[in-house]
Design a protein around this nucleic acid. Structure first.
Lengths: 354, 354
DNA sequence: TTGTAGGCGTTATCAC
DNA sequence: GTGATAACGCCTACAA
């Protein structure tokens, strides 16, 4: 290359990274030897040579190129993670758990965030596939079976988190929604509430929402003397929520309670209750899915159903990595129990104790 | 390979992806021709050939391997993002903005989350470097200048977000902390508060915290008749915070206010105030850095300083991509203003209006 | 306009 | 034990 082509005469010299050839040269051995040293160090090279290679590596600060390795081995050591919305604390928790497990197993996580635009799901999966991720962890809206199926046809293992796609033969990791609803509703009944309202984001085929709603209906059907209704709340129609709540809160004092399908809904219900002048606990029971940092600070404290989010994320990654390691098993379904975090919003009596 | 070695006799056939050779073969042309078609389609191939190639590509569902391209071109089209803590809404916002900008420019974002373990910063940067990311966006604790400096020596552009490393010659994107403090403190004074307390997480060299504290001190020094103190709060010493608050809240009623250095601190202050029986607005003014979804619901509503998080993330990515596109400029410093979200916690008079 | 050949950094298969 | 050498999938001179 003629000098004139170089970026800048006086600037930093072409800072090209050391390759295996450089190491081989410096150590006075062949590339193959260096490669062997790198991969199965136990299989003894002559100690003297091993030392020479090691020195050369350190001297040059050599790091193998994952790209080249990927090319050769057909394994990228990349795992793709698609989340519906990074803004959602649940997604973040999954991300956290998964990331750690991946790193521990020597994988790097590539993130694709849908920002709640379901139509980008295909794009996400295709991008990730192009990068030859070895597997996919999906916490998505589930619009696009096609892309997932295709990934699986290409032999990439897939793990679904939270949102189920029954048509797909994949591992699935999630909260035990049915159990969690029973737990929460059972607690409300014990606390003396008899008129229950389940508020959810629009169900629109999202499995976790459907499961929670179904479990709620089943629970109510199973319990004589308990009235139950359900309501789908959208962000743009707060009035409707107010109406639904009004019917609850004022009817029979201290006997009505709301079960909120997730943290966003909890917030919406809290806002609506404030508008209506209803106090949690005292006028209206409230339990919300998903533990958050602000739950203890909402009125007398918001009782929540905490998901074992870290475990969920970790398990998802673990499942995937097991498959990558050759585990051959029919699709697993892993459900973890929720935990009730008791606070003032579900204790009518204690509600005035701040 | 003997049949017995194959994964499973009846299972899916080795679902290996189509390569450029497959396309060439199918189209009856050479690999070079296909490659040309892919890269500079304008430079006319015989239309007839172009059509044949295109057909072959579609028929095979061929997607070029970014790995192989990276190897050849020395560009991975990967951008590394290191965040101190994905759990932090600020990090998430940055992530969101950056991700979108990267994707629009044809890059994929690789995430590395430190989980607040500063000592993993080096590990993160080295991992990312190994994957030949083309640049780095860092929102980290700043423990490890060495790794960053080394990345830059390797010619990788770096953009710092929120946490400044003055020793490093990099682009820097952040909130205008000084201006934001002035804005908030000024508002408190106008609202009649005269006794100000700035509560922060431990400063420990984190630039954004230091800047906010310094700005606070400067503000107080500039305003006669205004008393100001600062306090560093740790999660394990709530008592100390209680003490600090007690001195505030009870001394001269309705004249004391707290400025919380971030959302975590806001929450801590809120919890402490609840313990002490202090009501925001009425007994104690409160403004917190960082807008959150729960801010409107805390007591009479928490006044916050909203950061333009989306813009920050997007700008960070844009800066990086400009550098990747060859922009040669001295290190930029981009500061964006905060916005005051007025609510009850900073209006002593209105505090009782729910 | 198109094909041939060499190489990016690595690993695997041979010989030696 | 160790060293050539041929891929992996792609791009790019260069030749035709």
């Amino acid at each position: 290359m003629p000098a004139s082509d170089r970026p800048r005469p006086g600037a930093a010299p072409p800072p090209t990274r050391a390759t295996i050839s450089d190491v081989a040269l410096k150590a006075g051995v062949s590339k193959a030897t260096v490669s062997r040293f790198l991969n199965r160090r136990e299989e003894l090279l002559t100690p003297e040579i091993a030392v020479r290679v090691e020195r050369a590596i350190n001297a040059l600060g050599y790091i193998p190129s994952p790209m080249a390795q990927a090319l050769k081995r057909g394994r990228s050591r990349l795992i793709g993670l698609v989340v519906a919305d990074v803004t959602n604390p649940y997604s973040v928790a999954v991300l956290r758990g998964a990331e750690r497990a991946c790193q521990d197993a020597g994988y790097l996580l590539v993130l694709f965030n849908l920002g709640n635009e379901a139509e980008r799901e295909r794009e996400a999966i295709e991008s990730l596939m192009a990068y030859q991720v070895e597997g996919l962890i999906l916490n998505t809206l589930g619009a696009d079976h096609g892309a997932i199926a295709q990934a699986m046809r290409h032999g990439k293992p897939v793990v679904l988190v939270d949102r189920r796609h029954p048509e797909l033969q994949t591992d699935f990791v999630s909260l035990d929604n049915t159990g969690a609803v029973r737990l929460a509703a059972g607690h409300l009944i014990e606390a003396g509430f008899r008129d229950l309202l389940f508020v959810s984001e629009p169900l629109v085929g999202v499995s976790s929402r459907l499961e929670r709603e179904a479990a709620f209906r089943a629970f109510v059907a199973d319990h004589r003397g308990v009235a139950g209704r359900t309501f789908e709340s959208t962000a743009d129609a707060p009035d409707a929520l107010d109406d639904a709540l009004r019917r609850c809160g004022r009817s029979r004092k201290s006997r009505s309670a709301v079960l909120a399908g997730n943290a966003v809904i909890s917030l919406r219900v809290a806002a609506a209750a404030a508008r209506l002048g209803l106090r949690f606990g005292a006028d209206l029971g409230l339990i919300g899915f998903d533990e958050t940092e602000w739950a203890p600070l909402l009125g007398p404290g918001l009782t929540t159903i905490a998901q074992p989010t870290d475990d969920l994320g970790r398990l998802a990654a673990t499942c995937l990595i097991e498959r990558l390691n050759g585990l051959h098993l029919p699709p697993r379904q892993i459900l973890l129990p929720g935990r009730l975090m008791l606070r003032g919003s579900s204790r009518p009596d204690a509600s005035q104790v701040t």
